[in-house]
Amino acid sequence: MIKFILRRIALSLPVIFLIATTTFFILRLAPGGPFLSERAIPPEIQANLQAKYGLDQPLWIQYGRYLRSLLRLDLGPSYRYPERTVNEIIVEGFPVSFELGLAALLVALLIGVPAGVVAAVKHRGFLDRLTMSVVLAGISVPTFVLGPLFIFFFSLTLYWFPPALWGSPEQLVLPAITLGTPYSVYIARLTRTEMLEVLQQDYIRTARAKGVGEFRLLWRHALNGALLPVVSFLGPAVADLVTGSIVIEKIFAIPGLGRYFVESAFSRDYTTVMGTVLFYAVLLIAANLVVDVLYKFLDPRIEYR
């Protein structure tokens, strides 16, 4: 088990290096720069700034310096907020995004799995058709329509939840549901397909022949097998949630990392962009590792090596 995890970590180091390198060169190859943009800054100051951050050096020296600081886990100063480092920005923004993402994932699972199971059990029945239509409708409405819609109804009309900002649990509800809905819908669909498949298995018939009741049959015998694909979906889902949160954070004015990323991209804040991308890459690799470990835990057929 430990060995498996260590090996995976070792394998992901080159990936992280590759991402660091790619983002670095893409950014440098792009026209323009953090201090060369539209803003009318006097040339001397511009040159000064360039020198201060080493942007006047040859590319490979900059690259070398960047890698060295990466080894110290130092993502460098932010160009946009000179008084802050990228590390500080991440430490500040990430917990917010993390909380939002986790809540959304929870929403997705809590709605998606039961809906999928119900649809499968009532296969071709009314409830199946209903859930699956809702599911398709859910996939077809973009979150940035859903978000404002929720705000409109639940905040501005019903006054149930605050429409924006961050900090209190009530403020988490709407963004988490908005972000989680597409995934709940997807998970419902996946769960249904897999559940239908599992329910046709011989071992389900064996359980029935033992006199096992319907509830126990689903819960003890069918769910585990049906959830395995859902679990492996969670890896890419986290990646997707992360990107999705960019929009949600914008709609609900949440001070999360996604918003920093977009803002820093627009203002060509190289270090922050690189730092966030790199951070997210590490996060996703970690998330995938967790998912794989969970998968092995759920599937006894896979033995630890």
Partner: peptide, 9 residues
């Protein structure tokens, strides 16, 4: 690649 933050790129 599946596990990368694609849209960021």
């Amino acid at each position: 690649l599946y596990s990368l933050p694609y849209l960021f790129l």
